[in-house]
Amino acid sequence: MKTALLLLLVAGCIDPVDPAWSLNHDHVVVARATPPRIHAGDATTLDALVAHAGGPTTVESPLSASAGRTQVTGSIIAVNAPKDVAYDTGDTPVDVLMTFARGTNRALSPVQVKKTVWLGEPADNPAMPDVTIGGAPAGDALTVPADQDVYLSTSVPAGWRVNWLTSAGQLFQDDEPTSYLHVLPADAHDGELACVIRDAEGGVVWKVWPIHAE
C-alpha cells in the first residue's frame, strides 16, 4: 500500500497539503518546559513556538494546562510536583495537557498539546548548537541564493532529533541534521527559517531566523 501511495503521489492524484516543515501554516511547532526536568515540588514554565499562516512565529503561553498536580499562578502556568510522592525509582514522567491558540486565526479551535515533564534529577534545556547555512555560520538574519540548493546543517549527539521549518522555499530532509533549502522563483522570498532540536532527556531548544532569498 505504501508503494501505491508513493506512485499515486508521483502520478499527482493526491491533493496537496501543507508539509510539516511549513511555517506558513497555523500550528504548534514545539512545546517547551523550562526546565524540562525538576525535583518533585519544584516548578517549571511551559510555553510553545507557534507558527502562523502569513505571519511570523511567536512564543506563546498555554491558554490552559492540566496534569495530575498542575497549579496555575497568574499568567504563568507551572507544574508543581508534590513533595509527598516518593520518586525513588528514578525519573517519573508527568504528562501535562495544554491548550494553545492555533496560530493567528483565533476562530480555529484551540489545539491540545501534550508535553512530558520529568521528575527526578534536574536538567536544563540544551544550548543551541552551531548552525551553518550554505556552509557559513548562521548570523542573526539570513540571506540565501534563490533557485538553488542551500545547505543547512547542525551537529547534535546521537538520539537527538532535528527539525527544520521555513516559510520561504522548500525543504528537503527536514528531519535530518543536514537539510536543503530551495527557494523556487514562485516561492515566497521572505520569511523565516527555524531549527528545532529535541534532546533525549525531554529538553528542547529552537532558533528562528528571518530569511531572505535573492
Binding site: C13, I14, D15, V17, P19, A20, H25, H27
Partner: peptide, 17 residues
Amino acid sequence: YFYGFDYTQRAAFRQLP
C-alpha cells in the same frame, strides 16, 4: 481521504484524471 500532519487539512486521493 487523508489528512495533513496536524489534521487541520483534509485532502483527497483522487481518481486518475
